[in-house]
Amino acid sequence: MEPPRPKKLLDQVRDALRLKHYSYRTEQTYIYWIRRYILFHNKRHPQEMGTAEVTQFLTHLAVQEQVAASTQNQALSAIVFLYRVVLEKELLGINAVRAKPSRYLPTVLTPHEVQAVLQQL
């Protein structure tokens, strides 16, 4: 009798996320980013990659794709989860180019600011 084949990597990630009670939406998002990371490195297995490849991927997201800082952080969280929980490897010294945080305009004016605007009318 042949021993059972080990589970595929993304199935292992799903199992780990469910075991830790992550939401289904988080599961979908993490799988998306891990798949993108693997495809970016020409389908190399993450076990044979490390900090240098993670840094390269995150820098690519910031520089070439110009993603928002929150998007880059989401990708980083997914990849760190993969390495820490599923592969049980630590990533040390990730030094990627960081995406620029978006700047939001205030949506509420202080009473003083409202008074100043009304005086200009």
Rank of each mutant, 00 (worst) to 15 (best):
E2G: 06
P3E: 12
P3H: 11
P3T: 14
P4W: 07
P4E: 08
R5P: 00
K7T: 04
L10P: 03
D11K: 07
D11S: 08
V13S: 02
V13L: 12
D15M: 15
A16I: 14
A16G: 11
A16P: 06
L17P: 14
L17I: 13
L19Y: 15
L19A: 15
H21Q: 15
Y22D: 15
Y22A: 14
R25G: 09
R25I: 09
R25T: 15
T26M: 03
E27V: 07
E27M: 04
Q28P: 06
I31Q: 05
I31C: 04
I31D: 03
I31E: 03
Y32F: 07
W33C: 01
W33D: 03
I34N: 01
R36I: 04
Y37H: 01
L39F: 11
F40P: 10
F40I: 02
F40S: 10
K43Y: 13
H45V: 06
H45P: 08
H45K: 05
P46D: 02
Q47R: 09
Q47E: 12
A52R: 15
A52E: 12
E53L: 10
V54I: 13
V54C: 03
T55H: 02
T55D: 05
T55S: 08
L58C: 06
L58W: 06
T59S: 13
H60F: 11
A62G: 11
A62Y: 09
V63W: 10
Q66H: 14
A68K: 08
A69C: 14
A69F: 04
N73S: 13
N73K: 14
A75M: 00
I79C: 01
I79P: 00
V80E: 02
V80A: 07
V80M: 05
Y83A: 03
Y83C: 01
R84L: 10
V86A: 03
E88T: 15
K89M: 13
E90P: 06
L91C: 05
L91A: 05
G93E: 11
I94L: 10
I94G: 07
I94Y: 02
N95T: 10
N95R: 09
R98D: 03
A99K: 01
K100P: 05
P101L: 09
S102R: 05
S102D: 12
R103M: 13
R103W: 09
Y104P: 10
L105A: 14
L105P: 11
P106N: 10
T107W: 08
V108P: 09
V108S: 03
L109P: 00
H112E: 12
E113I: 09
E113Y: 09
Q115L: 13
A116D: 10
A116Y: 02
A116S: 08
V117F: 02
Q119E: 13
L121R: 07
